[in-house]
Write a protein that binds this DNA or RNA. Structure first.
Length: 286
DNA sequence: GCGACAG
DNA sequence: ATCTTGTCGC
């Protein structure tokens, strides 16, 4: 088993483009390819540098701000697991109609998990099956490809500025937003679930209220957004790919019927339900 | 050496 | 992520 992640192999890079907060300049964040002690386990997930470069959009950044009125479909992704086995999971990709959130497409599949969960490296574990699901959608029902995807995990709110949501955005070449249910604590950057943080949470009371998650050096990596009047916890929104933070937050806010934005919630519900219904079949495999 | 750590 | 019932409240 992989127990530590200190023996990184730093060779390849992947990129994420987004508009910065002033909506003017484009920023490029990169992540170093990393590997654990069992590097071979990561080989198949390694993103080829050239492949990624060709996928990166340079001049044609998605003009969401101007397309708001034309938003028709928003995607959601999530994975569910069973307690008995860590190496099998259920992946769900759903597409919701906007703004009523009727589910117009779903792809639920059982997938083998070969990469362990390591905080900070979630993308290497969860992105592959979701990227595959998206590829199936693009092939089978191209007219149902959503305008953007909400991902259950962080984007730029990540120690290397490149979490699961960014990973998926680049691999699928589609705008993504990162939505996490808990704050990814990064002591180096001064982002902790401390008293100060709890205090700020208590100050955002109504849906739409939010505060920035700012690094000690002044970079805003994401924001805590109150989405539900009935939950005290906010969700943590960050840029995935091809979005400004403001737009990302706008989307999450407008997708939130409950605390978790509807497309992700639907993906979560459906993947869980699939596991429940097929629990006998799955038990046979164990 | 120990603790912390999105899903 | 997952294990877990009812229950208090709007």
């Amino acid at each position: 088993m992989v127990t530590k992640y200190q023996s990184h192999v730093l060779q390849l890079f992947c990129y994420v483009l987004f508009r910065d907060s002033k909506n003017k300049t484009y920023r490029v964040t990169f992540i170093n390819r990393m590997a654990c002690e069992e590097e071979s386990k990561f080989q198949s997930w390694i993103i080829k540098q050239e492949e990624l470069k060709s996928k990166v959009i340079r001049d044609d950044i998605y003009e969401w701000q101007q397309k708001r009125k034309d938003v028709q479909k928003i995607g959601g992704m999530d994975l569910s697991f069973i307690k008995e086995k860590d190496s099998i999971a259920c992946a769900a990709l759903v597409v919701c109609q906007f703004p009523d959130f009727e589910v117009i497409y779903e792809d639920i599949s059982m997938v083998p998990m070969t990469v362990p969960y390591i905080p900070g490296f979630l993308g290497f574990r969860e992105a592959p099956p979701l990227v595959e699901a998206f590829a199936r959608l693009r092939n089978k029902e191209p007219h149902l490809v959503p305008d953007c995807i909400l991902v259950d995990g962080n984007g730029t709110l990540h120690p290397r500025g490149f979490g699961l949501a960014s990973h998926i955005g680049v691999c699928c070449n589609i705008p993504t937003v990162g939505v996490a249910k808990n704050l990814y604590q990064m002591e180096d950057l001064g982002l902790l679930r401390n008293e100060d943080h709890k205090q700020k949470i208590s100050e955002i009371k109504n849906p739409g209220d939010h505060f920035d998650l700012e690094t000690t050096s002044g970079t805003i990596l994401g924001l805590a957004l109150k989405t539900s009047a009935s939950s005290s916890k906010p969700v943590y929104v960050s840029i995935g790919h091809m979005f400004s933070l403001q737009t990302a937050a706008w989307i999450v806010y407008h997708c939130s019927k409950y605390r978790i934005p509807e497309p992700i919630r639907q993906a979560d519900i459906r993947s869980r339900e699939f596991l429940r219904i097929n629990r006998e079949k799955i038990a046979d495999i164990l």
